[in-house]
Computed example of a mutant assay.
Amino acid sequence: MFAPGIVSDSAVMFRRVLRRSVRGRDTLLVSLLLPILLMLLFVYVFGGAIDVGMRYIDYVVPGVILLCTGFGSSITATGVATDIRTGAVERFHTLPIHRQALLTGHVVEGVVRNLAVIGVLIAVAVVLGFRPHAGLGAWLAAAGIITLFVLAVTWIAVAMGLLARMPEAAGGFTYAIMFIPYISSAFVHTETMPAWLRGFAENQPATPVLTAIRGLLTGTGQQAAGVAVLWCVSLAVAGYAVSAVLFGRRYR
């Protein structure tokens, strides 16, 4: 159960973080341009040399979506660390607002921002030739998995922001999130990897999430959808729990 007033307090914090993100237009632009540039790189430079059994752009778009989420998470982690570094959290604690509203505001803003950027990314992919064969139900299922993944990554980014001593370090911590999709089925089949690496690639969260999204969008089925949802929910709960513990210890 939510405590009375937490929704309105979280909405206030969300608007505050959103205004700060909008003012940081350079950061927003980079978080959008980098995934698009990577998509262009893989499609037009490496795509002709990589055989994945289907049009490469249709294969690679889900991987770029996950990379986009990783880039966006660095903004959230840096924002949380900045609030701590500048003393904003202490000032908010003197006001009659719920403690968890600040973190919730960061999470909601991160999810909304990431989904908006992913929407732009998919539109660009369609212009480049991405042709999903999904019906309305499959699109909604894919959107649900993407949203769950974004939520999970955003909570993990909040925890990293709370762990970091400096905003720059918080952004650096999220490199691990950005790196994970590279060691998955994002850009090549895991069967092409050495055996010692394939085991990790096939049993980490990015691969089932990618398999589920790719299957739904290309009309090849709902493979790994249940596993993907389980991974996303588990990571979101873990990120929330760690964030709550760290925030509680820092601001008793």
Rank of each mutant, 00 (worst) to 15 (best):
C68Y: 01
I84S: 09
P62A: 06
A77W: 00
F92A: 13
V80L: 02
T94L: 13
N114W: 06
L67A: 13
H93I: 14
G87Q: 04
R113I: 12
R91E: 07
L67V: 07
T69S: 13
R91A: 07
E109L: 00
I97D: 03
V112N: 00
G63W: 02
A77I: 01
L103A: 11
H93V: 12
I75C: 07
A88C: 09
G63R: 01
V117H: 03
T104A: 15
D83N: 06
I75P: 08
V108D: 10
A88G: 13
T104G: 12
I84G: 09
V108L: 11
L103I: 06
V117S: 03
P96Y: 01
V61P: 00
D58V: 06
S73D: 08
E109I: 00
G105L: 02
Q100L: 13
C68W: 00
T69L: 13
G110A: 07
A101M: 08
G105R: 00
V61N: 01
Y56W: 10
L67F: 13
L67N: 08
C68P: 01
V111Q: 11
G105D: 08
T94N: 07
A101K: 05
A88L: 12
T86H: 13
P62I: 09
R85T: 11
N114M: 09
S74E: 03
G87D: 02
T69W: 07
S73A: 15
H93F: 15
V108H: 06
I84Q: 11
G105C: 00
R85L: 10
T94C: 08
T82R: 12
G79Y: 04
A101G: 02
L95Q: 12
R85M: 13
T104S: 15
A101S: 14
T76R: 00
E90Q: 14
L102N: 11
T82P: 05
G72I: 01
G105Q: 03
R91G: 03
L67H: 10
M54D: 11
G63L: 02
G79Q: 04
C68M: 12
G70Y: 02
M54E: 15
L115Q: 04
L102K: 04
V60S: 10
T78Y: 09
S74P: 07
D83L: 10
G72A: 05
G87A: 01
E90I: 11
L66V: 14
S74V: 02
R113L: 15
T78H: 05
H106C: 07
V111A: 06
A88W: 14
A81L: 00
I57L: 12
I65T: 14
L95M: 15
I75R: 09
L67I: 10
N114S: 15
V111L: 08
